[in-house]
């Protein structure tokens, strides 16, 4: 067993364990912290595949930016045990059955795949130079089209986030009534 394989097993076991802890932890803040551990182990896998750029981006974007947002949201919402919504037993049971079914199907499906260890000691497709070349030569059309996606998301952020000037009292009253009716229904 070479050093790569030992590293792979350590990383894989840590990844699965921390991913399980994300789901199991009662305290949401712990969940987020375990999620960060998961991201780091996945970055480790990327490095084993000789994809340094992806590994770094994964840490910067996910462990850095997105996790900070997660923590902020959790702190702003002030989640703790008292505010945790009580879910009915049946709902939990239904969730367990549904999740279990998916697990069963996936395991049954993937059980028969050929066992192969992919070890990219010599592969260099993940290096930043090659990645850039592929992105701007072969995949330039999807790259440009994704700009439409981001543009629409930006327009959406403006539409949803911008403060509305006061609307006339009548319309507002009407809307309040409508909402109340909707709630009553």
């Amino acid at each position: 067993m070479g050093i790569t394989q030992i590293l792979f097993w350590i990383l894989a076991i840590t990844a699965i364990f921390s991913a399980l802890m994300v789901v199991i932890s009662k305290n949401p803040v712990y969940s987020v912290l375990w999620l960060i551990v998961t991201f780091f182990t996945i970055s480790g896998h990327y490095i084993l595949l000789n994809a340094q750029f992806l590994a770094v981006v994964n840490i910067i974007v996910y462990a850095g930016a997105i996790m900070v947002l997660f923590l902020f949201v959790i702190m702003l919402m002030n989640l703790n045990k008292e505010t945790e919504p009580q879910k009915s037993k049946w709902l939990k049971l239904a969730g367990a059955v549904a999740g279990g079914c998916l697990l069963l199907v996936l395991v049954a499906g993937l059980r028969h795949t050929e066992k192969q260890m992919t070890e990219m000691v010599t592969g260099d497709i993940g290096l930043i130079q090659n990645l850039g070349k592929v992105l701007f030569k072969d995949y330039v059309v999807p790259f440009e089209i994704s700009s439409i996606l981001f543009l629409s998301a930006m327009v959406g952020a403006v539409v949803l986030g911008k403060k509305e000037p006061r609307i006339p009292v009548e319309t507002e009253m009407r809307k309040v009534e409508e909402t109340q009716q909707a709630i009553n229904i």
Partner: peptide, 10 residues
């Protein structure tokens, strides 16, 4: 976004 564009309606 368009679904939620009526911001004052719950």
């Amino acid at each position: 976004i368009l679904t939620g564009s009526d911001k004052r309606n719950l």
